[in-house]
Design a protein around this nucleic acid. Sequence first.
DNA 1: GCGACAG
DNA 2: ATCTTGTCGC
Length: 231
Amino acid sequence: MRVARLHELNLPVAEARRLQSELASRVQTGPPLDLDRVRFVAGADVSTGDEMAYATVAVLRFPELEVVEVRGAGAPLSFPYVPGLLAFREIPSVAEALSRIETPVDAVIFDAQGLAHPRRLGLASHLGLFLDVPSVGCAKSRLTGRFEEPDRKKGSATDLVDRGEVVGRVVRTRDGVSPVFVSVGNRIDLQSAVDLVLACCTRYRLPEPTRQAHNAANRLRRAGGNQESLF
DNA sequence: GCGACAG
DNA sequence: ATCTTGTCGC
């Protein structure tokens, strides 16, 4: 898939934050995504080692959720993990893995936040700005914002509010499991993002594309970057 | 100054 | 995220 030319990512922390605030104004909330016309959904995730990051992207046919393509890429880790600046650490490897995808995907789900970020530019929104398809943020834990615990039943959800704005939804993807944090990445509205995530969670807490990518990323790292481990 | 803090 | 055995719950 097409990934636009990235800008410099190896920046001083203060400048990285300043850049996020600038880019945030470019994020597009909406339009709604018609799930009836979605054929392929991709999930992206990263597994980190000592000095290397291994990213993988898994493409699944929708709504069947069967894996049709898995691609990966490794990149040296040059940026430390700083809450709020995850994109600067993981984008190099993820962008490369995404560019290797040949299937025409209709949406990408990232294992990170989108607008539910202190400067409204989580990895899903940041990298989403360089993609021509909708992107969704689906994180396992909260970065910012306040919320009330959703009911324990699958599908229950509550607003994630930060500084007076609804920046995402706290969604129960399966009965009883801990909720996930869904937010707009880019080029999609919050409701569609939540619907897509729920449609991808038929057996587990995390959306199937994300799960597949996560497993593949671990294999890729254990294999030292050997692409054949993705099969 | 003191907590909180995606992966 | 990663390091790791057994163990509590459905």
